[in-house]
Design a binder for these strands. Sequence first.
DNA 1: ATCAAGTCTGAAACTTGTTCTAGATTAGCG
DNA 2: CGCTAATCTAGAACAAGTTTCAGACTTGAT
Lengths: 220, 220
Amino acid sequence: MPAEVKVEAKSARPAAQPASPPLTERQEARRRRILHASAQLASRGGFDAVQMREVAESSQVALGTLYRYFPSKVHLLVATMQDQLEHMHGTLRKKPPAGDTAAERVAETLMRAFRALQREPHLADAMVRALTFADRSVSPEVDQVSRQTTVIILDAMGLDDPSPAQLSAVRVIEHTWHSALITWLSGRASIAQVKIDIETVCRLIDLTEPTEPTEPTEKL
Amino acid sequence: MPAEVKVEAKSARPAAQPASPPLTERQEARRRRILHASAQLASRGGFDAVQMREVAESSQVALGTLYRYFPSKVHLLVATMQDQLEHMHGTLRKKPPAGDTAAERVAETLMRAFRALQREPHLADAMVRALTFADRSVSPEVDQVSRQTTVIILDAMGLDDPSPAQLSAVRVIEHTWHSALITWLSGRASIAQVKIDIETVCRLIDLTEPTEPTEPTEKL
DNA sequence: ATCAAGTCTGAAACTTGTTCTAGATTAGCG
DNA sequence: CGCTAATCTAGAACAAGTTTCAGACTTGAT
């Protein structure tokens, strides 16, 4: 068993995806307790209900420790979202969408995710508000969420090697997805409206798929 | 000297609230000072630099008064955005976009707005973060901003009587616009990328020309 | 002019995110 | 085992948004 290597864990952020964080079992357990408490509190009352002192107490960790693991409330909630996204990606993989066109499949996938969020609207509120409120210090984590979302959409499209135009369409779909969620969460758009918006933006996909589904010729 | 005359909010501000109470001149002046201080502080350091105590001091108003005028920091910043949007709408009206298609004109308009925001990135940060962070208690004001944005886009399209499909497209464009701004502000997307996203989503407009008897590209 | 109701002010208090400190605990190591 | 560095804990302290309150000032009506 290789001894755990300490790579100057002083100034770097503790729990991140990219570089392998050398966490012991107890640390991993702490991290998990924190994320669980975060999701639980968020499910109750949304963004405001996730109070750092409560998260700390609820996960049996000192406040200072909580901040060592997640340097801000937004970091914590974005990490919570990463966690949930992973779970959802697994779920979606099991039953792939059945539409005929890529646009249909993407819309179906997003609507399925949307229905999942509707079951926990407060949790959705906390995560989405954190995502859009995040400033530059959270960019790496937010970017990771964005990449994960992109993967899910590309999965639904059934593409391995998207063209630049298709990536643009996917980005616009993600924009619409996030913003539509916000309008729904803040009570300014109905569920039906979100559905329409998603279906509308998904038509963009058809624009980027002229006739040939797979065209290896790609130039950047 | 006669008592202060109540000023109807019609000259410079088209109704924010349906039942907006008439403000005296001194009150109108206070409101204006507050909005000015808000914009000024925001221009310096963005969302975080707009501190309620500083806004109060800077606009020569007690903290309690500030909160009477704007019940929260987010309310204040959304109102600041309404103010700026109005100004921008005026500016845009003077030089309408010159594209051949509706999609081109909308993209040009949004890019023009984007360039204006680039000149005051901190102000943009404060306003956009407030907009997307706003909870239900700010819905009416946020909705007002949204309607104003819609008007600007429909103006650019040159439409008086948009079809439901066109309104959907406009909503999706707005979603993309807000979300793309956020990714730019948080340093996760370049200016070029925002431009591409805007141009991409504007193509949706071309997809929606069902009800009009007039056929493709024609200059009005 | 005068009074009642509403508004503004200054200051303190409260809330919650965040930081800091001193001491206890743990992990890796010879 | 005993050492050292890192980590964890409890708790105070700080920062900024928000609320509250008593008293002074305005406003509108008599």
